[in-house]
């Protein structure tokens, strides 16, 4: 009995570590490939794939840890303090959106909706952090563009997750993936 609990915990720990590493790699890749329009704050949000995967396959708690570690390590490795603050606010809001979607809208949304919602929340959090830091509401004029980007990129990430869960659902038991 004790053996199985321990091995389950080890499994969970290694899964979380693996996913965190994957999220970091995605963050790194995104920092390497600037988008053509290159407006600050525009990102594909590939690490959202990992965070959402974690939230629905492991648990919300694991997703929160993963998000926080990712933001922290990304800032330490390739970011700066301002970027860290923006990402932290963004990640917190995105996480709240995921909690909302998973607990209240589980049956209504596929990953497309969840992903768009969390991307929009992430960007709102970023802008909120910027407006607090710069003590100005004028940064909110930037939000419409970011929201459109959330709908597009978030939608793409959601389609990818729909596919991933579709494939993983076959032959793999819940909780073990």
């Amino acid at each position: 009995m004790r053996m199985t609990t321990t091995s389950w915990r080890v499994k969970r720990l290694s899964h979380l570590a693996l996913l965190t590493a994957l999220a970091l790699i995605f963050s790194y890749l995104e920092s390497l490939v600037p988008l053509p329009m290159m407006l600050p704050g525009f990102k594909l949000g590939l690490c959202n794939v990992v965070v959402l995967f974690c939230a629905y396959r492991l648990s919300l708690w694991d997703a929160a840890i993963l998000s926080l570690v990712r933001v922290l390590v990304t800032a330490l490795l390739f970011g700066n303090v301002t970027g860290f603050l923006f990402s932290l606010f963004g990640a917190i809001f995105a996480f709240l959106a995921i909690v909302f979607a998973k607990t209240l809208l589980l049956k209504q949304l596929s990953f497309v909706g969840v992903s768009v919602l969390s991307a929009a929340a992430f960007n709102f959090g970023q802008i909120l952090a910027a407006s607090l830091l710069y003590a100005s509401v004028s940064v909110f004029s930037y939000l419409p563009l970011l929201l459109v980007a959330s709908a597009v990129f978030g939608g793409a990430v959601g389609l990818l997750l729909n596919l991933i869960f579709d494939r993983l659902g076959k032959g793999i038991k819940e909780g073990v993936w």
Binding site: Q108, L109, S110, V112, G113, V116, P144, L145, S150, G155
Partner: peptide
Amino acid sequence: MRQIRLGDLFVILAVLLTAGVLFAFSF
């Protein structure tokens, strides 16, 4: 297993609508 649902479209529409309203405010 997981197909796009009506709720997804609502979320996308809501986000785009918010963007539109905020954009209109800037004018």
